[in-house]
Write a protein that binds this DNA or RNA. Structure first.
Length: 587
RNA sequence: CGGGGUGUAGCUCAGCUUGGCUAGAGCGCUUGGUUCGGGACCAAGAGGUCGCAGGUUCAAAUCCUGUCACCCCGACCA
């Protein structure tokens, strides 16, 4: 694992650095970082961690927790993830992926192993999106992994866009022989007549099928989706955000008219917006890409852009209007009602496992992942507390009874998913594992609860140690509202973050300052979190955009569909501009 | 492909400058015990061809040469 700064046990401070018991102090005094900066207070300081600290300090005070030897050292909060978001955002991200048990690096460079909890998330993404695609008239199909090299060459811009990152298959056999280093082993044999490209995207191979399927205007529109893996040989990769192989869905449609195809493009963009906001609780800006950021071969590319907690933009989904470019390349032609032979108008659109990265960077905190209830693999985790063996059977029975009851309730297109965690682990370990995985609700049932006919309920969007006692009846009656309350709270919190770091900027000096860290960047220190979304006017000159990217690392994320029109001078050139665009640093 | 760095236990690393006992630590893992509405403690234990190949030497994790892999920073990208 490439985590030079992580501790030996991976995810929590060792004894020497543990936070001292904060006896008699207000929780605020446990907060180690300066409170004067906007970021520390608003972004990370104001969230649930402070509550967790307060509760934890309180518990320690009354549970007689010893003042550890660490009390001589500067206070550091005991977060489940080290480093924290503020200390080192990119390292924090990697540690969350690991602590939440989502994925790990594979023996193959740039590829990842998606572990059960991570894959369950993706399965939920798939389930919901697939239903949305079906509801908008699409059907699933599957096209080959291998694309003849000549297919990729058909569309000029497309070639240029992908050529540099394609994996190429040149042989179809292995045989015993001498390897490059002279040692015996398996070597490729049976060279192919024509090399095959492992699909980086499937426009061309699907186009070949569409050309056969479309003859008449009656065959249109043709609305197809496929769930697949694709390969883009990236130089630098990060789990979920950019991997050499990733999982995605790609929709491909063909239409009789430009208007219809454009309408489809926008319809699917809207599907993505709804999915991001209402299911992932991730607010997005929808907009059109500039020429520089367009999909190679597309006439227009639209995207949903989300702001991560480090204020950088993540392109979370794209929808392309391809015009007749690919129809001409693949000869997708039809006879219209007047008997004229015409090229079809096509679209394509996709979202990928990158969304999991977006989910993490939108919602996770310094204690690990936080999963929005509507997409959570498990909504409620029930933890039996069995200090004495003799009471264990009764407690387990109570747990199963509650689980059974909750599982009968319908929620977000399925039923409430409940897991009773009876693994033979220490209670604290077990609880923290579920905190790190981000399960929305934890329920604890122990002997004292059982006696009083109560259960203890904790929410992942609140402090780790906060608990509320209620009867199983009350919980069953309240759980659906509770999950929706968490879902809404997560969106509101994320939206407030976006709003806090989005601003209209008309002064070039302010613009530059906005994207410049307050402290000078040094080689080995992580970049200070800064910037956000600048809504500024732009004259759309591609040369200016390239220059800006070079100088500040800032790009035009999109020309917003809403709230962009506002004539005035361009922020970069002063020339007349008609629209504000979203400028940001991006993933 | 340019610049920098690292390869020693499952993970994170120490040891190398100045070659020399049976190659170490923390965490994790196993077992036993004490604790336990909480990420505890004590004890015992499993686990390593020191990236690979040559060379120097009585002796190489350590010195030399070559090689491979990976990481970080750049150019490219969902």
């Amino acid at each position: 694992m490439p985590c030079g700064r992580s501790r030996g046990d991976g995810d929590r401070p060792s004894r020497g650095t543990r936070r001292p018991a904060c006896v008699g102090l207000d929780a605020r005094d446990c907060w180690p970082w300066p409170r004067d900066g906007e970021s520390s207070v608003d972004d990370f300081g104001g969230d649930r961690n402070r509550g967790a600290d307060a509760a934890s300090c309180y518990l320690r005070r009354f549970s007689g927790a010893p003042m550890s030897t660490a009390s001589k050292q500067p206070a550091a909060p005991q977060t489940a993830i080290t480093p924290t978001r503020e200390q080192n955002y990119t390292e924090w991200y990697q540690q969350v992926v690991r602590a939440a048990d989502l994925a790990e690096n594979s023996p193959v460079r740039g590829c990842m192993v998606i572990k059960p909890w991570g894959y369950a998330l993706w399965e939920n993404f798939q389930r919901v999106l697939d239903r949305m695609f079906k509801e908008t008239g699409h059907r699933n199909a599957y096209f080959p992994l291998f694309i003849p090299l000549s297919f990729l060459e058909k569309e000029a811009e497309h070639v240029e866009g992908f050529a540099k990152e394609c994996a190429v298959v040149t042989h179809h056999r292995l045989q015993a022989g001498k390897k490059a280093d002279g040692r015996p082993g398996l070597v490729p044999a049976g060279e192919l007549e024509e090399p095959l490209v492992v699909r980086p995207t499937s426009e061309t191979i699907i186009g070949a099928s569409f050309a056969k399927w479309v003859q008449s205007w009656r065959d249109l529109p043709l609305l197809i989706n496929q769930w697949a893996n694709v390969v883009r040989w990236e130089m630098r990769t990060r789990l979920f955000l950019r991997t050499a192989e990733f999982l995605w869905q790609e929709g491909h449609t063909a239409h009789a008219t430009e208007a219809e195809a454009r309408e489809e493009t926008m319809r699917m963009l809207e599907v993505y917006r709804v999915f991001a906001e209402e299911w992932m609780a991730m607010p997005v800006v929808t907009g059109r890409k500039t020429d520089g950021e367009r999909f190679p071969g597309a006439v227009d590319t639209f995207s949903i852009e989300a702001m991560m907690q480090d204020r950088k933009a993540l392109q979370a989904g794209t929808s392309h209007f391809l015009g007749q470019n690919f129809a001409k390349a693949s000869e997708i032609k039809f006879l219209d009602q007047a008997g004229t032979l015409q090229h079809a108008w096509t679209t394509s659109w996709g979202v990928s496992t990158r969304l999991v990265g977006g989910l993490i960077m939108t919602h996770a905190d310094d204690d690990g992942l936080v999963v929005p209830p509507r997409l959570a693999p498990t909504h409620v985790v029930i933890l039996p507390i069995t200090p004495k063996p003799e009471t264990a059977p009764a407690i387990h029975e109570a747990c199963e009874k509650l689980a059974k009851r909750l599982r009968e309730l319908p929620y977000a297109g399925r039923t409430v998913e409940v897991e009773v965690d009876r693994r033979d682990l220490r209670g604290g370990d077990k609880m923290w594992q579920w905190v790190k995985k981000g399960a929305p609700v934890r329920v604890e049932i122990g002997p004292r609860d059982l006696e009083q006919g109560l259960v203890s309920v904790s929410r992942r969007d609140r402090g780790v140690k906060e608990r509320e006692a209620m009867s199983p009846d009350a919980l069953a009656g309240r759980i659906l509202d509770l999950l929706e309350e968490i879902q809404k709270g997560m969106f509101d919190r994320a939206k407030a973050h976006v709003d806090r770091h989005s601003r209209k900027i008309d002064d070039p000096k302010e613009f530059r300052a906005f994207f410049t860290p307050s402290k000078p960047e040094t080689d080995n220190a992580p970049t200070e979190i800064h910037g956000g979304f600048a809504w500024s006017r732009f004259c759309m000159d591609p040369a200016e955009e390239a220059k800006l990217k070079n100088e500040l690392g800032v790009t035009v994320r999109c020309i917003p569909l809403q709230g962009g029109e506002d004539p005035g001078p361009c922020i970069l050139t002063g020339k007349p501009a008609t629209h504000r665009v979203v400028f940001a640093k991006a993933y």
